[in-house]
Every structure is written in C-alpha cells, then in structure tokens.
Design a protein around this nucleic acid. Structure first.
Length: 904
RNA sequence: GGUCGAUUAGCUCAGUUGGUUAGAGCGCUCGCCUCACAUGCGAGAGGUCCGGGGUUCGAGUCCCUGAUCGACCACCA
C-alpha cells in the first residue's frame, strides 16, 4: 500500500474524482427537515456569463471554508449556488455578438433578441459552476437558482406589486443618470464617478434688449452682461434661466429681468434661489433643467420650463439651434465654445478637476437626462436597516464597514429601478391605451384588459434593474413568496461573504429587503473581502493583462494551494497582492504545504500499517514527554483555529494550523517518534507513539479540511479509522480542544529539549562538523528535571542532533565548544583539535558582551523607581528574573573563557 | 471637499487589551540526496517598525501632526 504512493502529491489525480465522489454521496446536500440548527450562506451570484477570476476564488474559498467548518460542527449547512442574469452586462455581450453578424437588436426585434440571449445563456451559462467545482466549493447543486428563473421572477413581481401597493414604488419624471451608449437609465450607484481633469468655461450672457442694469461689466458694443461658469458648455443650449442667490447684492436688481441666451435668440429670466453659492465663480449659475439634477430642482422651485436639447444618444436634437443639430455632445461642446469665443462672449477658460460619472458597464460618460422612470422610495426601507445595524442584528467584519453603511443609509436617495433594456424582468405595469382613461395597472397576474374601462392595455416596455432581483436572494432562492419548508428551515441565512464593491448595490439592499419582506435581517454577519491586486497594486483586469486565471493555478498547483494562498494571503478585509508574472512565488508555498501533508500521510501509512486504531486513552500510562507535548500543542492549536474561524480571522486560522502541522508535528514530533515507531524503544513506547500519531494526524486533517479539503480528505481516507467514524472527512466531526491534554509542564520541558537540540545543531554548523562525524556531547543540566528529560530523550536527541555519543557530566574547563541555554543548562562539545580556539574565544566574548548589554539595560530599568512603583508586580518580577539569568549566563561564559586561557 | 484604510526584513504579510532580545513564508548565504517529503532537512545573515512631536516608568501598539499609496462618499456650476 505504502509503496503505491508516490513521494510527490499530484492534485490533478485526486481533486476532480474526489469532488465527484463527494457530490454523488450527497455530502453537499442540506436537509431542510433535519431539525438541526442551520448555517446558511447566500452566494453572491456571479454573472451568468462570468468566468471565474481571483476575486471569485477568494470569496468563494472563504464561503466554502465556513460552510465546511460549520457542517463539521454539526450544523445543517446550506450553500445554494446561483447566477445573476446581469441585465446590462449580458445584453451588451449579446449585442456585440450579433453586431458581428451585422445586426442590431432592433433588427431582431424584442422577442427574437431575448430568445437569442437565452440561447447564449444556456450555452455558456454553466461554465462558472464547473469552475466553482474545480476549486472545491461544496454547493448544494440541485438547489441552483438563476435570477431570471420562474420562481425568482415571481418573487420579483410580488415585491414590485407589494411596494406599489404601499406607495413605496412610484413613477417619476426626473433627472436620472443616462448612459448614451447602453441607452438606459442607471441608478446612482451604477454611475461611477471618476476624477477628471476638465475645464471650467466662463461664458458671458448679455442682458436682453431693453434691459438695463448698473454695476455690470460691458461688452465692446456697450451691452451689459453676466458671467456664468460651466463644465458642460453644450448644455447652455437648453438653459431656461440664470440663478443667483437672493441675498447677493450684486444681482438683486436683476432678478426678474431677462438675459439674451447667446446662439439661441431666446430670452431667459434671472431668478433667485438659495442653491447658488455667491462665493463660487461669478455667483451666477446657468440653469439647464433637462440636463442637470440640481438645475432641475431649481427650475421646479422657480417655475422655469425644461428644454431637452439632446437625443438619447446624446446628440444635439431639433430643440437645439440648427447649426448644432446632429452633433455629438462633445463635438457640440467644442462648437459652442468656439462660437462664444468668436462673439467675444468667452470670458475665460480654467483648468478644473471634478468628478464625472461614468457608466459602470461600458465606461461611457453618463448624461443626466430628464425622463419618466420607476423609483423605489428608500427612506422608509433604509430606516429599519440602519436600526438593525445599530441594534447589532447585523455585524460587519471588519467593523469599519458599519460606518460606511451608516453613512450611505443616512443619505439614501430613491432607487431608479427601470431600465430601457430587453434582458431582464419586465416591469409588471400596464397602461390603458384609451386616451380618455390612461389607467395604470400594477398586477401580479397579466391583465387582459383595463379593469376600469375595459380597453386594451399595453405593458411598460422597460425591465427592472438587475439588482432588483438580487436584493431578494436570501429568501427568493428558498421559494418565497411561498411558505416552503426551505424557507422555514433556512431563513434567515447566517453569514454573507462578499467584496466591498457591492456593499450598496447588494448588501445594504438585501438587509432592507429582508426586513421589509421577511421581517428579519437576512443574515447576522457580513464579511467583506479586500480586492485581489497584482504585485504593483493594480486591479487585475483583462485590458491590463495582469490577471491570474484561477483555473491555471488549479491546473499547476492544485485547488488546495489556491485556497491556502488566498486564505492566508491577506488580513481581515485587506487587499491581497499576487504576482501574475511569478505564480511559483505566489502559489508554491501552498502546493508545498499540501505536499507536506501528503508525506505526513505516507509516513503514517508506513509506520502505522494496517494495525487497528488504538485510542490514546488506552496508552495513557506509556505516554512520553514528546507525546504529552504534541497532544498539548494540538489541543491549543485546535482552540486557536476554532476561535480564529469564529472571529472571521481566516488568515490566522490558516497560519495557526500550518504552524502546528509543519512546525510542531512534522519538524519535531515525527522526528522524535521515528525510533519508537520503528520499534527501537520497545513495544509500549511504539504503541503509544502509534496511537498518538494516528490521533494527531486525524485531528490535523480535520482542522485543515475547511481550507484544504482535497488533500486532507485524501490523507484522512488512508489513515486507520476510529470506531464509528464518518465515511468522509467532510462529514466528520470538527475537533474540540481536550483540556486533559493541555500540559504546561510538558510544554516547558519540551521547549528545553528543543533548546538543547537547536544549540547542538548550531555548534555543529558553527564548527563545520560533518554529519557523519561522531562528536561526544556533554551537558550539565540546570536541574534534575532537565537531566531526567535529557536522559529520557537521549536516543531521540542523538538522532536529531546527529551526535552519536552522549555523556552527561561536568565539562571541567576542558577545551571545546560550549553553550549556556536559557534554562541554565550547559552544553559542551569536547572539540580540542577540531576547532579554531581564537574563533571560539571571540564567540564567547561576543556572547558575553551581548548578555552584559542586556543586563545593563535591565538593571537600569530596575533601578528606575517609577518603573518599580508603577509597573505591575509580575512585570517587575520578570525583569528581576531576566537580570539574574543574564548574570548567571555571563558568569558561565566567563568561566569558559578563563578555561581557554593559555590553551593553544 | 469629506470619511476611512495602508505604511514593520529585499518581497508578501503577522504582531491580540502598551510590558522578555519585534515574528512567519518566500528570497539570500552556508551545510546536507539523513530510510515521509530536495515541493525537503538543518544553521545563519538581514529591521532607524514612513517622518516629526507628545502621553507614559515603558510606545511597532495610544494622542497630535506631516508624507506617500489606496478606497469610498460628495449637486459647488
């Protein structure tokens, strides 16, 4: 059996088949009727057309680690897979596809286009699911959902109708963010502001003919004028007034009078509104109600009309003067500025940095546009969501995101949910075509006719924002609005793991939705991951070509290596940096760790063989120091890993398990146990070592399973099974710390042993003693206890240190290498003739000097009255002990030096 | 313009409520193909904890301030 295992672990041979076995065995399935406490994670549904990237790799690994851990702890753990129809994104992809055939969506028509998108989704949509399988995600596949499937569509419709009935959804004629490329409205969140270096143009608006005023500058022809500043000069074509502050004395006499709007021949009034900041620019603001949200509000207050001068594509329309018609907005901008300049109406141009909103899907500059759209009234939904956080019903990790959430909710604005797209949930609103009636029908079932007049109705052509289905995810996936067994068992969910970028898009809205429709927060904990960046700190992106394909990593390093790397690569909520040019640097350590586990397993197979598992309790009488030490360390590691997971400290959990397995178990215990396991130390000793080794390895695999599921299962399957064990590690029990194993004195004694061994190795290295050379070691232990420990570990110590003869006794000033350990134990290697005595003298002197320095520092500290008076007694006591220790060591070193005096 | 992060070894990161000589991995140097593992074993070098003030017996840790990088929010045209 053992010989069959190659010395190097090959993840490719294990992972896919292991995953398939888990899935076939039904281990991923959560039973809604088990009655066990439920642990549920709502997956952030990836876009249906998405391919897995490192961001998915990170947050799905964390989710899987949590689900696997809770499942092992005995919870009914549910993780439902799903994907998002991703309205704009998917529609854009398909539009590009058909564009290659020389067609537009209008050529196809709505029905055919939507059919085409479905076809595309069915063909490529499942790809990301296979990729999640490849990294080991234990998702309950038969429960997979899609935001546009029948059930979720019903939930969306129910929610829209309910909100309409409560007057929380309404149709409004407002300025919204409009993408002139996608030709749809966007929510405020979908308009991403980018810092842009632009210009601020100062334009002169002359007073209209027959209007006079004092104190204004004058043009060459004698007309007085006002100056307005703008970053978007083309919008002046749609100006319908100029606003000044009512208290601005420069302009009070002008309020109510008219200006001539250049290039248009229109006369527009000067109005007063407190929105204007008199200190900024000229203190006069051009008002373009149809193309700026603030201007729109000012116009509403002062009763100015709105004049839309652009087409949906942001091309100047027929309302613009003829010479500008048909011009793109940026072309018109240049033309307007040139025209002002020509007329002597361009006062000045300044450089100006400001935030410009861009479409989050295609990066086109957003054009504010006046239109009819559907909105959700957010204030009534936001208040309970804010309160829930304040009450501690929802907690963010890291905590600071709570304040960001709070700030957003306190300033929440209504949510524009209608999109002028074809791919998505059609808005369940019908309008009566009877011009006399015009009834609006909002209904759960499609109406055949107008309920008021019996006339024909037509459905609103728009669809809903993609996020309008996502915010229902935690309960819509469980069958809501029906009262299903799943909903009973699994709502509320438990933990949400997500990127920070969708805190507002998704997380905050889910909390609002959960409270509104289910009456309870959808989850208690929210863990926000940082971003995966390249080694230069840049976002990974297709255009920069600096991304890392998780599947390539799985191929070359294994899923466990990927998972280990992302788990241990960043602190809570911190960004992670990975070098796409050197995958070995990033993922090598994880692969090596998996290989370490593999080999620990091989070692166990070779030494434990097919012998039945013996419980540790049954060998309690013959446990040796190393046994007691490793069991104690294991219990503490178990407690630490569990605590770290509970606190969402994944990096700590991974690191702690790694340190235990590699640093304690592999480096020390396995080495010390070898002679015993080979039978050199007698049967009792061997049996004790076997029992302990089996126990410790078993528990180590359990501890690491949530992070590295494949290798741990692979090793665990080959270990001797304990009575009544589960068929798979993934459904076995999470280990508990064992108080009875924790043994401070064993740990202290073993630490002394480690000191001895390390020191011997150091001396051998220092003096270049070849591995095969036998050198006698003498040790003068500080106490009978250490003496006993050294005796007990004699064989193991010899093996580790590669010192074949050990003799314990006084060194008597004999020439050789020597060392004094922290415990006071003195080591001596008689090396006359082997070593350079001058070098040894120097080493001893240096060591003594260093210790003297430390002693002086400590002495000074202790002679400080304030320290002694104010520091805690135990701290002072510790300092005293330190000082005594330093002095003792210095004494011994001096003795050694003296012994070397005069020796050649 | 607000708010919030980050800055510790060449690189990627830990460092719990202030308290032994600030840690790990990778890289580097040296020695090892030692019967689980060379994806390994052993030893070692390497740090003004971003700068400047302050509080304290004591500061990587707390306060103030500056710098650099980053994120989020924001209607100053």
């Amino acid at each position: 059996m053992a010989e069959a295992l190659p010395p190097t672990y090959d993840p490719k041979q294990n992972e896919a088949s292991l995953y398939q076995w888990w899935e076939e065995q039904g281990f991923f399935h959560a039973d809604e009727s088990s009655g066990k406490r439920a642990y549920v994670i709502p997956i952030p549904p990836p876009n249906v057309t998405a391919r897995l990237h490192m961001g998915h790799g990170l947050n799905n690994t964390i989710q899987d680690a949590l689900v696997r851990w809770r499942r092992m702890q005995g919870w009914e753990a549910l993780w439902i897979p799903g994907s998002d129809h991703a309205g704009i994104a998917t529609q854009n992809v398909v539009e590009r596809l058909i564009a290659q055939e020389g067609k537009s969506r209008d050529d196809l028509g709505r029905e055919a286009f939507v059919a085409r998108v479905w076809e595309f989704v069915h063909k490529t949509g499942g790809e990301i699911f296979d990729q999640l399988r490849a990294i080991g995600c234990s998702l309950d596949w038969p429960r997979a959902r899609f935001t546009l499937d029948e059930g979720l569509s019903r939930a969306v419709r129910e929610v829209f109708v309910r909100l309409y009935e409560k007057d929380l959804v309404y149709r409004g004629h407002r300025i919204i963010n409009w993408c002139p490329r996608c030709l749809t409205a966007l929510s405020d969140e979908e308009a991403e502001t980018q810092e842009t270096h632009g210009r601020l143009w100062h334009l002169r608006y002359p007073l209209a003919e027959g209007v006079e005023a004092d104190g204004l500058p004058r043009l060459a022809d004698g007309r007085a004028y006002m100056v307005v500043a703008t970053t978007r000069p083309e919008t002046m074509l749609g100006d319908t007034c100029v606003a000044v502050h009512p208290d601005d004395e420069r302009y009070t006499s002008l309020v109510g009078k008219e200006l001539e709007l250049p290039l248009t021949g229109r006369r527009i009034p000067v109005v007063a509104d407190t929105y204007v900041d008199p200190a900024f620019g000229s203190g006069a603001v051009k008002i373009t109600p149809a193309h700026d949200p603030n201007d729109f509000e000012v116009a509403q207050r002062v009763g100015a009309p709105a004049l839309d001068v652009m087409t949906p594509e942001a091309v100047m329309n027929d309302a613009a003067p003829e010479r500008f018609r048909g011009m793109d907005r940026f072309e018109a901008r240049r033309a307007v500025v040139a025209a002002f300049d020509e007329l002597g109406l361009l006062e000045k141009t300044e450089d100006h940095t400001h935030a410009v909103p861009h479409c989050y899907r295609c990066d086109t500059v957003v054009e504010p546009r006046l239109s009819d759209q559907w909105f959700v009234r957010m204030a009534p939904l936001g208040a309970p969501a804010l309160q829930a956080w304040r009450d501690g019903q929802v907690r963010f990790h890291p905590e600071r995101f709570g304040r960001i959430y709070e700030h957003w909710l306190e300033n929440i604005r209504d949510w524009c949910i209608s999109r002028q797209l074809w791919w998505g949930h059609r808005i369940p609103v019908w309008y009566c075509r009877n011009a006399e009636c015009r009834e609006t029908v909002v209904a759960r079932e499609d109406p055949a006719a107008c309920p008021k007049c019996g006339g024909a109705v037509e459905q609103d052509p728009d669809v809903l924002d993609t996020w309008f289905s996502s915010w229902l995810w935690p309960f819509s996936t469980l069958g809501w609005p029906d009262q299903t067994p799943d909903l009973d068992a699994f709502y509320p969910n438990s933990t949400l793991v997500s990127g920070q970028d969708i805190l507002f898009f998704w997380i905050a809205r889910m909390i609002m939705g959960g409270l509104e429709f289910m009456g309870r927060v959808p989850f208690q904990d929210v863990y926000l991951t940082g971003m995966v960046r390249d080694h230069l700190g840049r976002k990974m992106s297709k255009s920069l070509g600096n991304g890392i394909d998780p599947l390539v990593v799985v191929q070359h390093f294994g899923a466990d290596a990927l998972r280990y790397t992302v788990i241990t690569g960043a602190g809570q909520g911190q960004d992670q940096y990975l070098n796409y040019q050197d995958l070995e640097l990033a993922f090598g350590p994880g692969r090596n760790f998996a290989n370490k586990l593999w080999n620990a397993g091989r070692f166990a197979l070779m030494t434990l063989g097919d012998a039945p598992r013996v419980p540790v309790e049954s060998v309690a009488g013959s446990l040796e120091l190393a046994d007691r030490w490793i069991l104690s360390r294991l219990s503490r590691a178990t407690a630490d890993v569990t605590t770290s997971l509970e606190r969402f400290r994944f990096q700590d959990a991974g690191q702690r398990a790694y340190d235990f397995v590699w640093g304690d178990l592999a480096d020390w215990y396995l080495e010390m146990a070898k002679p015993r396991l080979y039978g050199d130390m007698g049967d009792a000793s061997r049996d004790a070592a076997r029992a302990v080794l089996a126990e410790v390895l078993d528990r180590s695999m359990r501890l690491l399973h949530p992070i590295m599921p494949f290798i741990t299962e692979t090793v665990w399957q080959r270990l001797p099974r304990a009575e009544g064990d589960a068929p798979s590690l993934m459904v076995s029990r999470w280990p508990e710390p064992v108080a009875a194993w924790e043994d401070a004195s064993a740990e202290a004694a073993f630490a002394e042993l480690q000191d001895v061994v390390v020191e011997v190795r150091r001396m051998r290295q220092e003096y270049g003693i070849q591995p095969g050379v036998r050198v006698p070691l003498r040790a003068v232990p500080a106490s009978a206890e250490v003496q006993a420990m050294l005796d007990a570990s004699r064989r193991a110590l010899g093996d580790l240190a590669r010192v074949d003869e050990l003799s314990f006794g006084a060194a008597n000033g004999e020439v050789g290498a020597s060392a004094v350990l922290r415990s006071g134990t003195e080591l001596f290697l008689p090396l006359a003739g082997v070593i350079d005595l001058d070098r040894e003298r120097k080493r001893l002197r240096d060591e003594a000097t260093k210790l003297e320095g430390l002693a002086v520092g400590t002495e000074k500290k202790l002679s400080n009255e304030s320290f002694v008076a104010k520091a805690p007694a135990e701290v002072v006591e510790r300092e005293r002990e330190k000082l005594a220790g330093y002095r003792e060591q210095v004494e011994k070193l001096r003795g050694k030096l003296a012994a070397l005096e005069g020796v050649q």
